[in-house]
Design a protein around this nucleic acid. Structure first.
Length: 567
RNA sequence: GCGUGGUUAGCUCAGUUGGAUAGAGCGUUGGCCUCCGAAGCCAAAGGUCAUUGGUUCGAAUCCAAUACCGCGCACCA
């Protein structure tokens, strides 16, 4: 619906420019010219600032220019559209009810494709998310990243992008070895030995389960190579993670192993590539500046292999090798992102926890050094999730091994609640997730509120059948109530909302839209009788309700949330 | 100290990438079931958009300082 107005305005401007009434080159200012939705209803359905933006270039008063623009609009495309000039020179467009109502037919005809578009032009996008370490079960923070990444992927796919979902498995390095040692410790414990646990071990209950499984499968692990113990543990944890993700309706296309980068020489190649361009030096980092806490005491000031990321705006150069000569995590990450870039994606999206925020600059620096393109990567940081119950915080302590896992929360509240709730805030804002509220069946709970609106439409169809009423013979022109036209306008907003959410990687825009649409529907429903005696009115109102249902269903599908027929 | 996210109604947060008179939910107060699902709806009250400057036709939005809050700060992932 928006495109119609955009086309009309640009056609008018081109005609003016063509006839010499606008100076040459004025149309280059086109990006600044916007067709937008006015906040104030009396300002119509759309408005454009064209006259304001162009007034100076054209050396005309905005109001005079606005009149000229209106005179140049192509008459053949403006049926059902009226306009006026307001304020300092805004041009407001009003869509006539007849034209609005046509949208209902379009929505029902396009069905579950309504809201989808080709805006992305088939561009290839890689969305990397979750990437939780294979050292323990996913917690709620991972869950938020998982839902955010998956929904961004769904939005991109719906707007004409070719999307790949990828999970980066950190199966190399010290952490997984600690996991292996923790499992061995538990094995010996089960065998009756009492020993002090290994340094920095994972005390969680799940490690005991892994130990039991290992004993059952291989007997005494003392006879096994340590690497096999590690592999067994990683496989066990990853199996759990995959299960959780499946439950959450999240399906990955690729699982990318960090270890593969080490053994395949991928890191060597990336480092060599950097080196070739002079971005690597042997140097000494400055002693870390002390901040409030104690400064690290074990700074040794030794020369090491450094990536000169400061050249690309990072705060400090970054080491690529540890004291023992093995590569740092960052070195592997450089190689990983280099690999991504070389796979021919137009765009990379990474979803990380906010605690990794310090990494953004250095990864972007590496990408710029390797490919010359910095903007290719978008990093979305998700803030903390605070679990509460009845308003009081639920204690989570990973150190004590008593944290609440994502699985527990999903079991308690259901996938729909978790997915929707995690998308009710912009990713930059923290979320309070209340277990009691997420389960409640009242309008305090946005998930049920939206799903309820969907179910209500189905309930209407059931009543219709019970009473042996027909839904045919509707007369759309009977939809005259302000609430009805308002609902249709909201439905017309859906495609723009999806596109905006996709391009800005802000899924929460969609949850807000759906909550508002549901609210408008509930209000309408409470004040108007849908199943009216008059078949003309009844049919038209039913069509409106069915269109609302379709849009809610499409929106929920993009969020990965179910649209129940009854609740 | 550096970086980063944030600061909008009593609380939790939106604000469509710079538009016209600042929005929602919760909470508070008061209303609505003979009627399609009250699992819902309607109404009222509630604001120095942290502060100060700047950019321009126009700023909650962009820039610069300042003040608080969260997160991160060699050789972990």
């Amino acid at each position: 619906m928006r495109e119609i107005v955009v086309e009309v305005v640009t056609a008018g401007l081109r005609r003016l420019a063509g006839s010499g009434e606008l100076p040459d080159g004025v149309l280059e200012a086109l990006p600044e010219i916007k067709v937008e939705r006015p906040r104030e209803k009396s300002h119509g359905d759309f408005s454009t600032n064209a006259a304001l933006v162009l007034a100076r270039h054209a050396r005309m008063k905005p109001l005079d220019l606005a009149r000229k623009i209106l005179a140049a609009l192509p008459a053949e495309q403006t049926a059902g559209i009226s306009w006026d000039i307001a304020g300092p020179g805004f041009i407001n467009f009003h869509i006539a009810p007849e034209r609005l109502r046509m949208l209902l037919g379009e929505i029902l005809a396009r069905g579950d494709r309504y809201g989808h578009s080709a805006a992305g032009g088939g561009r290839k996008v890689l969305v990397e998310f979750v990437s939780a370490n294979p050292t323990g079960p996913m917690h709620v923070g991972h869950g938020r990243g998982a839902v955010t990444g998956d929904t961004i992927a769904r939005l991109l796919a719906a707007t004409g992008h070719q999307v790949t979902r990828e999970y980066y498995i950190n199966d190399a390095g010290a952490q997984v070895e600690v996991l292996g040692r923790s499992v061995l410790h538990r094995c010996r414990e089960i065998a009756g030995h009492v020993e002090t646990p290994p340094e920095g071990w994972y005390p969680g209950e799940y490690v005991i389960e892994i130990a039991r499984a290992l004993l059952e499968r291989h007997g005494d692990p003392a006879s096994l190579p340590f690497s096999q113990v590690v592999d067994f543990a990683i496989d066990w944890v990853m199996r759990e993670i995959r299960e959780d993700l499946e439950t959450m309706q999240i399906h990955f296309d690729q699982w990318f192993s960090e270890r593969f980068l080490h053994v395949s020489g991928g890191i060597d190649r990336a480092v060599e590539e950097l080196s070739k361009n002079g971005w690597i030096v042997q140097g000494v980092l400055e002693r870390p500046k002390g901040w409030d806490g104690a400064s690290p005491e074990d700074y040794d000031g030794r020369p090491q292999l450094l990536f000169r990321s400061t050249h690309f705006g990072d705060d400090s150069d970054r080491p690529l090798k540890k004291g023992d000569g093995s590569y740092t995590y960052f070195a592997a990450d450089i190689a990983y992102h280099f690999d991504k870039a070389r796979r021919g994606f137009d765009r990379l999206v990474d979803v990380w926890g906010a605690d990794h925020g310090g990494y953004v600059k250095r990864v972007q620096a590496a990408l710029e050094a390797l490919t010359g393109k910095r903007e290719i990567l978008d990093v979305i940081l998700t803030q903390m999730v605070n679990l509460t119950q009845g308003g009081k915080p639920v204690r989570m302590s990973k150190r004590a091994g008593t944290f609440v896992t994502l699985r527990d929360v999903v079991k308690e509240t259901g996938v729909d609640a978790v997915r929707f709730w995690f998308l009710t805030r912009s990713s930059g804002a923290g979320i309070d997730f209340d277990l009691d509220l997420a389960k409640s069946r009242t309008n305090d709970n946005p998930v049920f509120y939206v799903q309820y609106a969907h179910a209500r439409v189905f309930s209407l169809l059931t009543r219709l059948q019970e009473r042996n009423l027909s839904r045919d013979g509707g007369d759309r022109s009977r939809l005259e109530a302000p609430e009805e036209l308002d609902l249709i306008r909201r439905l017309g907003l859906f495609p723009e909302t999806v596109e905006g959410a996709a391009l800005s990687r802000e899924p929460h825009r969609l949850t807000y839209y759906l909550s508002e649409l549901a609210a408008a529907f509930h209000g309408y429903y409470n004040n108007h009788r849908i199943l009216d005696e008059d078949p003309g009115l009844r049919g038209a109102r039913l069509e409106l309700c069915l269109a609302v249902r379709q849009v809610i269903a499409n929106g929920l599908a993009l969020l990965g949330v179910s649209a129940p027929e009854s609740m």
